[in-house]
């Protein structure tokens, strides 16, 4: 199959209206709900391959259009049918990675095609129950990062069971985080950490003013009552 940057003229027109154009922006169209890691060249563009091309700013995987700086990843409208209630499920075999930890920042958006009439396309990203993993790591060079109408389900990680967010400009629109878990500390669904050079460590238990507790009941009698 030939890599496609856009699929349907109507979709392309809508996207053009809805998106702010960026110099060098590419639209990469995912054409399959299958996931394989490592990826296979089979003529179908998987989400994992699309993310890799966006990260590499090239056609690292020939099944997908190349990434070219600012990128938008969308999904072929043929994947969304009344039979699946316009919801595509991608059963992941491992964690996804968006952008990279170094280099220039580029915009990255991941969203299904726009709603058509009463139908709103949605994509479920479901972590593998066999080998627990974070659903997606969004690296610092994904800025701004946009995720829209995506479910993040069943992820599991040390922090950020669903998404581990390193981007410092991120927008989540109509995203559902369901049943994710962080086994370490922080962010069952999503974890975001800022700050240069900060070392993450589990937060200690703080002590605060205990105020009136059961043990202090007797002490209240000793309090001096103010009367006007």
């Amino acid at each position: 199959m030939t890599p496609r940057k856009t699929h349907h003229p109507l979709i392309a027109a809508l996207l053009a209206l809805l998106s702010v154009p960026h110099a060098g922006a590419a639209t990469i169209v995912v054409t399959t709900h299958a996931d394989a890691n490592p990826s296979v060249t089979d003529g179908e563009c998987s989400l994992r391959e699309a993310l890799a091309n966006a990260r590499a700013d090239s056609a690292q995987f020939p099944d997908c259009a190349p990434g070219t700086g600012d990128d938008e990843i969308t999904f072929d409208e043929s994947l969304f049918r009344l039979g699946n209630l316009f919801t595509v499920t991608i059963n992941l075999v491992g964690g996804l990675s968006a952008s990279s930890t170094s280099g220039p920042a580029h915009a990255l958006a991941i969203r299904p095609p726009p709603p058509v009439g009463p139908y709103t396309p949605r994509v479920r990203l479901v972590a593998s129950p066999e080998s627990p993993h974070t659903v997606m790591s969004v690296r610092s060079t994904a800025a701004p990062f946009t995720l829209e109408r995506i479910n993040i389900e069943g992820g599991r990680g040390i922090t950020g069971g669903g998404i581990n967010l390193e981007s410092q400009r991120a927008t989540f629109d109509n995203v559902h985080f369901i049943g994710n878990r962080a086994d370490g500390s922080g962010g069952g669904a999503l974890m975001q950490r800022y700050g240069a050079g900060e070392t993450f460590s589990p937060r200690p238990r703080r002590s605060y003013w205990s105020g009136p507790t059961s043990r202090a009941v007797a002490a209240w009698a000793a309090a001096v009552v103010f009367a006007s």
Partner: peptide, 12 residues
């Protein structure tokens, strides 16, 4: 969702 801290969303 579940975690030791920040059951759904953690930000530090």
């Amino acid at each position: 969702n579940q975690a030791d801290s920040g059951g759904a969303l953690g930000q530090l």
